[in-house]
Computed example of a mutant assay.
Amino acid sequence: MPAVARFRSVVLDCPDPHALAAFYAKVGGGTPRAEDDDWVVLDIPDGPRLSFQRAPGYQPPQWPRADHDSQQFHIDFDAGSTWEEVDAAHEKVLALGARPLDLEDREKKDFLVYADPAGHPFCLCRIESE
């Protein structure tokens, strides 16, 4: 079946689109492109296009919650095939302003969960080499 439309972008609401785009550029690569004060686009190399829009009164998602205030989605990043690589990425995202949400049971889950500076959840994943 042919697609109805072509994927364009994942858009994150936030209080400061320039700051959040700069954070994700440091995590995933790319150069943020401001279209105006309220909208910034980031094309991550070999990844998705992320867009950031200013949302007055923005409230970050609560993680983990099962009710209507729970996260709407999260972003996964491949942080390497070893825990040493993931640990190095962990230190870097913390230095960039990420906040740990769930660092438990990493050997069982193969991922660590963080909040970006605006509160959106994202994961650093250990991806085994094929």
Rank of each mutant, 00 (worst) to 15 (best):
R8W: 12
V10S: 06
V11M: 03
L12P: 07
L12G: 03
L12D: 04
C14W: 06
P15K: 06
H18R: 13
A19W: 04
A19G: 06
A19T: 04
A19M: 05
A22M: 01
F23K: 02
K26W: 01
V27A: 01
V27Q: 00
G28M: 09
G29T: 12
G29K: 00
P32V: 15
P32C: 09
A34Y: 01
D37Y: 08
V40C: 13
L42H: 00
L42D: 01
L42V: 03
L42Y: 01
D46W: 03
D46M: 07
G47K: 07
P48F: 12
L50I: 03
S51W: 00
S51E: 15
Q53Y: 06
Q53M: 15
R54S: 09
R54N: 12
Y58C: 08
Q59S: 08
Q59P: 00
P60Q: 06
P61I: 15
P61C: 10
D69M: 02
Q72F: 03
F73Y: 08
H74T: 01
H74K: 01
I75E: 11
I75F: 07
F77S: 00
F77I: 13
D78R: 13
A79W: 14
A79C: 06
A79N: 01
T82R: 03
W83S: 04
V86I: 03
H90M: 08
E91Q: 15
K92C: 03
K92T: 13
V93S: 08
L94A: 05
L94F: 04
A95Y: 10
G97I: 12
A98E: 05
R99K: 15
R99C: 01
E104I: 02
E107N: 12
